[in-house]
């Protein structure tokens, strides 16, 4: 393990300076064996509060898609915060979304109609919230025996508004159509450590993240079984807890305990890493969920730093 002081990228003391310094890049390792593709990311900004200057408190979820929208699960404050932005999210535009059913929002996603879906940690259920911030029921899959025989630990909404639920009780991924009808069930592979997150890439491939073995599994759109696309990646990360993909199909793993993002190619080849552990801007401390919008901006719920950080890939 590298010393943290060795890992941290150089940080400028003021924001203007940061933006001006073109070479100020959050380093991705360019170790040749990691793959031919070289990635570079730049830190853009951090989001600390809402329009009323209420500070974010241990945010665990971020959702972004189109329409210059960013929704943050401000977990410690039991609320969601909605940001709109042009060049970067403006805290002055932030609006609080708070519904009584929301106790402990942990993970969020948006569909194409900007409806918000939230996995609530206390209730262990997925809550549906309208685009204008009103409670719109719970998502409970059909044909599931009882709430206690269903344990959603993560979920994802694909580009066609299908909702995929990672159910660790029935050991399967449950795929629901936009109207909530059950469309598919994909059983977990026979041997695995513990699945903590899932995502669906732009080709409809369902990806599962095994946090114990640091391994990624995939099932193609028409397949009913998962197979590993990576070996155990423990040598590169400590405890991956989040998973997402970008437009190119690259896979991003949020290493919670290692406080960094690991990036894989579509086929699972290691490409590099983003950020490192720390408190200053650009550095992460126990990050949770991340999302990438249609403009390629990367939002990371920097949970223990009480903020959301924004990065962008440099061509």
């Amino acid at each position: 393990m590298k010393n943290e002081s060795d890992e941290k990228p150089m940080m400028a003391s003021n924001k203007t300076c940061r933006i001006l310094i073109a070479g100020f890049i959050l380093a991705l390792s360019a170790t040749p064996s990691w793959g031919a593709e070289e990635l570079k990311f730049q830190y853009i900004t951090s989001i600390y509060s809402d329009a009323q200057e209420v500070k974010l408190k241990q945010p665990q979820g971020v959702a972004c898609r189109k329409n210059n929208l960013l929704i943050v699960a401000d977990t410690g404050n039991a609320r969601l915060v909605r940001y709109t932005f042009k060049d970067s999210p403006a805290e002055s535009t932030a609006r609080e979304i708070s519904v009584p059913q929301l106790k402990y929002p942990q993970q969020i996603a948006m569909n194409s109609k900007s409806e918000i879906f939230v996995l609530d940690g206390r209730q262990r259920r997925i809550i549906r919230i309208t685009a204008d911030g009103k409670f719109n029921g719970y998502i409970d899959p059909q044909n599931t025996p009882a709430p206690s025989a269903y344990a959603p630990i993560s979920f994802h909404i694909d580009k066609d508004d299908n909702l995929y639920i990672l159910d660790i009780f029935s050991e399967q991924v449950i795929g629901l159509g936009p109207r909530g009808e059950t469309r598919k069930r994909i059983k977990f592979p026979k041997k695995y450590g513990f699945f903590l997150d899932l995502t669906v890439d732009n080709r409809g491939r369902v990806l599962l993240l095994d946090c114990v073995d640091a391994r990624v599994y995939s099932a193609t759109a028409n397949s009913a079984r998962f197979s590993a696309i990576t070996e155990g990646l423990k040598a590169y990360m400590r405890f991956p807890a989040g998973l997402t993909t970008d437009r190119q199909g690259r896979i991003y793993l949020v290493d919670r305990n290692g406080s960094k993002i690991i990036i894989l190619a579509r086929d699972g080849t290691l490409l590099g890493r983003l950020s490192a552990r720390g408190w200053k801007e650009g550095l992460l401390s126990y990050p949770s969920q991340m999302c990438i919008n249609d403009r390629g901006e990367i939002f990371v719920a920097d949970t223990n730093n009480n903020r959301v950080q924004v990065f962008v890939e440099i061509e």
Binding site: K103, G121, R124, S148, I153, I168, E171
Partner: peptide
């Protein structure tokens, strides 16, 4: 899963599942 143990350990299970964060392995089968 926890449904088996809950029959006797009701109080402990109720207290556990009334927290914000439940240790994930407790919720699987």
């Amino acid at each position: 899963g926890v449904r088996l143990c809950r029959d006797c350990h009701q109080e402990m299970v109720a207290e556990t599942f009334n927290k914000n964060r439940v240790h994930a392995p407790l919720t699987d089968n």
